[in-house]
Design a protein around this nucleic acid. Structure first.
Length: 266
DNA sequence: TACAATGTTTTAAG
DNA sequence: CCTTAAAACATTGT
């Protein structure tokens, strides 16, 4: 489900527990969410620690605890982060529950495509420090984006936008929103994009990201009907810009929605 | 029933 | 080493 704006929203849910001790840790030891992480070590080390801070970068989250303990989190397709009353029992898909006196901090993920990792040290884990520049950072410049376009010459532009090593946090709906906004067909190969197209996509990426963070990332508000977002999920709905029927198909391996009039194929 | 779901990883080929 | 495409992952809802 979650892309960068939803991740930002979820990250903040645990703020209710900041500065408070983790009195107990409940987890499903064989959950796929832990993968290479040892869940028992994670449980031992987080128990008794104070929850200090959280960070989000693209679709990745990092939670900091006292004593140099760090919890990495990725929500995959179906992950959620929530806060429940202190007497919350561990439910079927609650793969990690951090129990505090006033509430429980819960990581829930029924499909288990998400990920939980553990790290100990003064510094954040290596993988966190190596993440690519965020799309709203200074480093993610027009020129840097043009370089990405060249590197992915043979792939549909939608595939480039979904490349987490280049546009961390952009996911399926944001990619469609960005291309719809600048009127570019998602199946266009990157090598066929001109400099003006590249700049337009860069600009739309930043705009959609900023707006999504403001509207969804803060309160999970509904995007306005002027966005593609509210029209893309169901078949047969109309483009909010020109009224034409929207098209759907698989591009770059993902279900894609576009307006055949606003986003004419090259 | 069968397919699709806002995501990554692995595998294989170029 | 890099890019690209396809299958796999696990569960739920239509």
């Amino acid at each position: 489900m979650p892309e960068l704006a939803e991740v930002e929203y979820y990250r903040k849910q645990w703020d209710a527990g900041l500065g408070q001790k983790v009195s107990d840790v409940r987890l499903h030891e064989k959950s796929r969410n832990f993968r290479e992480t040892d869940p028992r070590l994670l449980r031992d080390r987080l128990k008794g620690r104070i929850y200090r801070a959280s960070y989000a970068h693209g679709k990745n989250m990092l939670f900091q605890f006292s004593g140099g303990a760090w919890l990495g989190g990725h929500l995959g397709m179906s992950g959620k982060i929530l806060v429940t009353p202190p007497d919350h029992g561990q439910e079927k898909h609650d793969h990690l529950v951090l129990v505090q006196r006033k509430q429980c901090l819960v990581f829930s993920d029924y499909r288990m495509f998400g990920r939980l990792t553990f790290h100990e040290g003064k510094q954040p884990p290596e993988w966190w420090r190596e993440l690519p520049p965020e799309v709203l950072s200074r480093e993610f410049s027009k020129a840097a984006f043009a370089t990405h376009v060249r590197a992915r010459a043979g792939s549909p532009v939608k595939g480039l936008l979904l490349d987490q090593g280049r546009l961390p946090g952009i996911g399926n709906w944001m990619a469609d929103e960005i291309l719809w906004k600048c009127g570019i067909y998602p199946g266009v190969r990157c090598r066929d994009l001109g400099a003006a197209d590249s700049d337009a996509i860069w600009k739309a990426t930043r705009k959609v990201t900023r707006d999504a963070l403001r509207i969804i990332g803060t309160n999970w508000g509904d995007p306005p009907d002027s966005w593609l977002f509210n029209h893309r999920w169901k078949k047969g709905l109309a483009c909010p810009r020109c009224g034409s029927g929207l098209d759907r198909g698989e591009i770059a391996g993902r279900t894609t929605c576009w307006c055949p009039r606003c986003q004419a194929e090259f």
